[in-house]
Design a protein around this nucleic acid. Structure first.
Lengths: 147, 147
DNA sequence: ATTAAACTTGAAAAAATTTTTCAACAAGAA
DNA sequence: TTCTTGTTGAAAAATTTTTTCAAGTTTAAT
């Protein structure tokens, strides 16, 4: 298992708390979760893990390039697995998120390469207005804008 | 001025506070700023504007597609002007940000288009490890990882 | 299996950031 | 100018993020 070697090389220890967070992202490759959501979901299975440990494990796993964080309209951080690059389209009005994984995304990584930088993850977020919100009457949009 | 028409159509008013924030981003097309930074910089010029107004103006301008928010290693939100698409490379270890604007970025927008979604902005963030941090001894990296 | 050294955890407090409230004010239309 | 309605500011509230430090674990060596 490659992760264990990385931990060892860096003098880090594989505690059961970190393991739980790693497993969580292995089981949840698709979604993106706030720290609280991760905490709650892990707590349902394994009671012996604190919010603080989740917080720290996520920060660590991000630095190791295993997960990445992302921020949507709600201002708190979400984390997601770093395995499947995809696009996030988010509507600025209603907040809805549409995910896409087009073919050309695979070629993009080569283009992103620059000298002297070791890429561990990348993400593309697109903002705009979804069909439903485009169709809304100005009054509805106006109300949303003020919130 | 097109923005004024948008405001009018939506029943929004062009207050001097909103104007100040708009001007701020016109004068600062390049950087990305936390709400506090925006507040402090605007306050230096124009004393009659509260943090709350900056907060609300930024949320509004983002929904109108004029600015966009972005979150780096520090977890609070930064805003940046929506005029010049560019890439952000951030080192996961030291936090340093490298910005690039390669030629091919212009063609990307067409590829991003999907049905029924009106794009107002997009951004690409790349994470990894910079040259300097790659060269560091494990001890230094280890220390950073624990922070 | 023990032990020592170093790393990690958990609970709580602290810090920082974001959001709401509501009375007073201001912009824009008539 | 006046009226209607949108906006502001200050403070409080809510939420989220981060630190602290004593106690507990992990790992490697004995």
């Amino acid at each position: 298992m490659e992760i264990k070697k990385t931990f060892k090389d860096l003098g880090l220890r594989m505690s059961k708390q970190r393991m739980a967070v790693l497993e969580f992202f292995e089981e949840n490759k698709e979604g993106h979760f706030s720290l609280n959501e991760i905490y709650e979901k892990i707590s349902q299975k394994n009671k012996n893990i604190s919010f603080t440990s989740i917080y720290r494990a996520c920060k660590l796993l991000e630095k190791l390039g295993l997960i990445r964080h992302i921020s949507f309209e709600e201002r708190h951080i979400h984390y997601e697995s770093n395995l499947t690059p995809h696009l996030h389209y988010q509507c600025l009005i209603c907040g809805k998120i549409i995910e896409e994984s087009p073919e050309w995304l695979r070629e993009l990584k080569k283009k992103l390469d620059i000298k002297d930088f070791l890429i561990t993850s990348y993400r593309i977020q697109i903002h705009g207005i979804c069909k439903e919100c485009q169709d809304k009457y100005p009054e509805d949009i106006r109300r949303k804008l003020r919130t």
